[in-house]
Structure formats: structure tokens, C-alpha cells
Simulated assay, not measured.
Amino acid sequence: MSATDPDGQPTKRMLRRDLIAVRNRLPQDDAEKAASVLAGRALELPELARAHTVAAYVSVGTEPGTRALLDALHARGTRVLLPVLLADNDLDWGAYDGADSLVRVQHQGKMELLEPAGERLGPDAVLAADAVLLPGLAVDEQGMRLGRGGGSYDRVLARLERAAVDPALVVLLYDPEVVARVPVEAHDRPVHAVVTPSGARRFR
């Protein structure tokens, strides 16, 4: 089955399964070291260095770690927005004000997430972001991102497109997760850059 097959979803499922299995075998020490290096690499990106507002997320499980990056952005005075998962899988947003501003939330049928405890700013708050950090499982050589399949960030990207705003779209990954090609559907959009422990790569 090719990456442009209209029935590409089973291929996405298989690729997600394989990538998650590899992540789940990553030793905790290696994940923590990668998170520290990733923060440094991401902070070197001009798109983040000059951003006044960054929409980000709190990594969970064996995802490439974002906590060090969130703290570094907050410390330098960048306004950081974090998502709040809604019942329909859309995202509201709240401001990050350090680790104490996060609360653990158990969404029914989903993994426990860390979300901002403060004021809800509404789904359109992301429109103010100069850069958006997108979670993902892989990015290919054309900059196409493979997400987890929940659709939350597809809604974010569609909202940005409808509003005709164009923040820098950045994905944090482990090095092997930059692949030759991922399955693509009509609604998928390329990202601007991927950051891995070995460096950053831009696509457009």
C-alpha cells in the first residue's frame, strides 16, 4: 500500500504501533538524556528564540520530553500555552506558569495528562502563537507528520489555516523517527521543522 493510498489508515495504524513499541523499549535514563539535549536544540531554533508566544504540550510516557524546554521558555519570558483536552478531542488552552501550575487529569478512556490549572483561554488562543510544538510519532523527508491518531492537532492545524495565520510548526522526535515517508491523507499538512537530539531540520 502506498503512502498516498486513499485507504491509508491501516498503514498509519501499523506504523504507529511499531513506533510506539520502539519508544516503550527506551530506557528511562536515555529518555531523560534525550529530553535535555532536545531542549537545547529546540532553544537554538530562531523560530523559538524570537517567539513571544509558543503553544506547546506536556510530554507523557516515553514521548520525547518537553518539560525542560517548557521551563527554559518560561524562564526566558516566553508566553507558553498548554493544551486542555476537551470531551470532543478538541483543545482548549491555558498558560504555563511553572511546574506548580500543572494538574494531573484523567480523561475517560485515555491516558492521564498534565494540564494547566489556571484560566481557560479558549480553543482560539492558539491563533496568537508564533510557534506551535506538535506532538508526533514520525516526520518524513517532506515534513509530513504522523500523529497518534486522536485528531486533536488536526483540528488545531485546521483552525490556524482558517484564520490565515502561519506560526512555525515544530515537532520534537527521537532520531530514528525521521523517516523516508509516512502515509498522507488529504487533511495532513507539512511542518516547518523537526528537532531531534542530533539537530534540527527544516522543510519549508
Rank of each mutant, 00 (worst) to 15 (best):
R104P: 12
T62W: 11
A3P: 08
S101D: 00
P116H: 09
V80N: 11
L146E: 07
D130Q: 14
P10K: 04
P190N: 06
R104S: 12
L70M: 04
D92K: 08
A163L: 12
D88G: 13
A131L: 11
G151Q: 00
R120L: 14
D130L: 13
A163G: 13
K110C: 09
A164N: 15
R202H: 08
N89I: 09
D5M: 08
Y57R: 10
A35H: 02
V37C: 02
V60F: 12
D29T: 14
R148W: 10
D90H: 14
D124Q: 15
L121T: 07
D7Q: 15
A34L: 01
A39S: 10
A42S: 08
G98V: 04
D100L: 07
D71M: 12
T4G: 04
G136Y: 02
R50G: 15
A158W: 01
D100Y: 04
A117H: 05
S198T: 12
P190E: 10
D140T: 08
A193Y: 08
A95E: 15
M111C: 06
L48T: 11
V54R: 07
P135C: 09
L82Q: 12
G109H: 07
V22P: 05
Y174T: 00
E119I: 05
V60N: 10
N24H: 04
N24W: 00
L15W: 05
E177W: 11
Y174Q: 02
A186S: 11
A168K: 06
G143S: 03
E115D: 01
L113G: 05
M1K: 11
P190Q: 04
E185K: 06
V58L: 10
G40I: 04
G199F: 12
D140C: 06
A51I: 15
V170P: 06
R25F: 09
P197W: 02
A31E: 03
R189G: 08
Y174S: 01
M14P: 14
G143N: 06
A72L: 05
A186I: 09
V170K: 04
P6T: 10
R13A: 13
